[in-house]
């Protein structure tokens, strides 16, 4: 059990900065997910916390102790790797025991912890098998087990589910969340999958280009994306971003009630509707370009009238639209997200 503090953490590879100064306070027992596109520095950040990458400048404190100079083994962390990194020549049991033996944990204690972890992850019957005899999902569980038995101050997960197929991924996601709730171990979890991020996190850290764009609960991040980048990255399909000038021209006379400095407006596809609401709203004319049915709902790709601006509207069911037909879409004034294009920040 520990807190993790990152203070102005930086990492350069030669002259190329990978992490450009990150500050983050992780509370004891909190589940933090680092999310962002590939190359955003999230993995590097995690590996710095693990001690697998050197720190260019800044501080890392785990449980109040500065660990920048400490070896990975001295940081009291356990890590789950994307490719699991199980020792191929050792049985599952030996894999679980290895870290404990290196730490000279007593035999009875090792047996107890291995049994406990095996029960928790339902890998008891596989303890005497080698990793190559296991399925992908089972290997993933063993990798988790190896972290679990250590009873560390913090778990570090480096895209642990991305080598699994879609169905198993959902199942393991739920399981990881359940385990973490139960053990209350501080966790840092890296993923590029926003659905994973949204469902797992106590708090999300959205990263881009080596910097933190926003820190907040999944609901906060979804409802109030702090930057244009976050607005475009979180949410699927992504938020529509429309020039304020265009909106003004189309909705002449309506008070948009946007703060000064706004020149770009975001509207979630869910917030665009085909029937004018009672609340104050804007109306936009558009041409249907494509209707994409995705099961219980459909994504309507439209082109806004008199512009090249494309947008997506999420509609329930499978409405029948002829491609090329003219329609009107509406959005409540209250659902508009105001941004400044130059700074990339939210203006309200």
């Amino acid at each position: 059990m520990a807190t993790i503090e990152l203070i102005d953490l930086k990492k350069n590879y030669g002259a190329i900065p990978a992490v450009k100064g990150v500050d983050l306070s992780v509370a004891d027992g909190e589940f933090i997910v680092l999310v962002g596109p590939s190359g955003c520095g999230k993995s590097t950040l995690l590996r710095m916390v693990a001690g697998l990458e050197s720190v260019t400048s800044g501080r890392i404190e785990i449980g109040g102790r500065d660990v920048v100079k400490a070896e990975p083994a001295e940081r009291d962390i356990a890590m789950v790797f994307q490719n699991y990194a199980l020792y191929p020549h050792m049985t599952v049991r030996k894999n679980l025991e290895y870290g404990l033996r290196n730490r000279r944990v007593k035999n009875e204690e090792i047996t107890r912890r291995v049994q406990e972890a095996a029960a928790m992850l339902e890998i008891g019957p596989m303890l005497d098998r080698k990793p190559r005899e296991l399925s992908g999902g089972q290997r993933q569980r063993v990798a988790m087990g190896r972290a679990l038995v250590r009873e560390p101050a913090a778990f570090l997960f480096d895209e642990p589910l991305s080598n699994l197929d879609a169905k198993l991924r959902v199942q393991m996601r739920v399981e990881i969340r359940r385990l973490q709730r139960r053990l209350k171990t501080t966790s840092l979890y890296v993923t590029h999958d926003q659905l994973e991020a949204m469902t797992l996190a106590d708090r999300l850290v959205v990263m881009n280009g080596g910097l933190v764009e926003q820190v907040g609960t999944p609901v906060e991040v979804y409802e109030r994306p702090a930057t244009v980048f976050v607005a475009g990255f979180i949410g699927s399909p992504p938020m529509n971003l429309i020039d304020l000038d265009y909106l003004r021209a189309q909705s002449a006379g309506t008070d948009l009630a946007l703060p000064n400095g706004t020149d770009l407006v975001g509207i979630r596809p869910d917030d665009m509707v085909l029937i004018g609401p009672v609340e104050p709203s804007i109306a936009l004319k558009a041409t249907v370009e494509l209707l994409e049915p995705v099961g219980g709902e459909s994504h309507l790709h439209i082109r806004l009238a008199g512009s090249n601006q494309l947008a997506i509207v999420r509609v329930p069911g499978r409405p029948s639209f002829v491609e090329g037909s003219e329609i009107s879409v509406f959005a409540r004034i209250g659902d508009l997200h105001p941004y400044n294009r130059a700074s990339g920040n939210r203006t309200d």
Partner: peptide, 29 residues
Amino acid sequence: VPDELMEAARVDGAGPLKFFWDILLPLSR
């Protein structure tokens, strides 16, 4: 040999010689 194997061993508290003896040597059999 995957990089992660060495990283996992380091997190598991193995120094270079222990990693060599416990992991690398058996893999090179």
